[in-house]
């Protein structure tokens, strides 16, 4: 299925900004079940641009604007093909994956405090599919969707204690429990394929055959979600859509984010 995907974020500043430098991950991922057919990344005002792929193979653009401005718009316009995956989750649990980078603790996702919960939750579970479903059910029961309750620096455990959060927190807590069970799982940032209002976050769980299955704990959806993923990483810090700094005497704020996903072909 082919999608036209547009991402646009607008920043406004109290005073003139003389340098604005940003690292962006706003282009659909080119790999796994996605193929990036075309893309364009730019900013208003325009700046110097450079491009690279990071350690997770995400497409990263760095944009440095040196023209004096009080408003900055960063946007991407892409065409991406999303294919369905062959999903299999009836693998035996537990399974020894050995070392994997998606098992390690990170600043935002530390599996340690979730050890007991994880073991308790998966008592009697025989397959990975059952484990995933019981974790998602548990997370959804513990966290109430509440925008503004958390921010980009809220850790999985803080969100869990708070009992409130957005898709990012559902994802972090799910990742922490999966990693506590030694199941490699990664954070995915992207957009949903049905009238998205903002960027979304969900989880990809590694199967013993090395493939990843997608799970959306926020919307309680499992496998072959059909969403358009932008970037993958260990936690949000690896995939932040736009991260950067600017030089100014005044403060700045993210005024709005616009995300558009339009199906252009089956």
């Amino acid at each position: 299925m082919d999608y036209r995907v547009v991402y646009r974020s607008v920043y406004e500043y109290e005073a003139d900004v003389i340098v604005n430098e940003n690292t962006t991950r706003i282009v659909p991922y080119d790999g796994d079940n996605q193929r990036l057919l075309e893309h364009k990344v730019d900013s208003i005002p325009q700046g110097y641009k450079t491009y690279f792929r990071d350690i997770f193979d995400n497409i990263v653009y760095r944009i440095k604007v040196t023209e004096v401005h009080r408003r900055l718009e960063i946007y991407s316009d892409s065409l991406v093909r999303v294919d369905a995956k062959a999903i299999r989750v009836d693998y035996d649990f537990p399974f020894d994956y050995g070392f994997n980078q998606f098992l390690l603790p990170t600043r935002l996702v530390d599996p340690e405090p979730f050890q007991k919960i994880a073991i308790e939750l998966t008592k009697g579970a025989k397959s990975l599919g059952e484990v995933i479903e019981s974790i998602v059910e548990f997370v959804r029961g513990r966290i109430k969707y509440s925008p503004g309750a958390t921010d980009v620096n809220t850790t999985a455990y803080d969100a869990f204690k708070l009992g409130k959060g957005v898709c990012q927190d559902y994802t972090h807590v799910t990742l922490a429990i999966l990693r506590a069970l030694k199941i490699p799982a990664r954070y995915v940032m992207g957009v949903v394929n049905d009238t998205p209002r903002a960027t979304h976050a969900w989880v990809e769980v590694m199967m013993p055959d090395g493939t990843y299955v997608d799970v959306d704990p926020t919307r309680n959806r499992f496998y072959n979600l059909g969403y358009v993923k932008f970037a993958i990483g260990r936690d949000f810090a690896d995939v932040s859509p736009v991260i950067g700094s600017f030089v100014s005497s005044g403060r700045g704020q993210l005024k709005n984010v616009l995300v558009e996903v339009r199906k252009v072909a089956d």
């Binding site: 980009v152 990012q168 209002r197 903002a198 979304h200 736009v242």
Partner: peptide, 12 residues
């Protein structure tokens, strides 16, 4: 030098 405000994924 100030940090750019980040965009927290909050889709539902």
């Amino acid at each position: 030098v100030r940090s750019q405000q980040e965009n927290q994924p909050e889709g539902k």
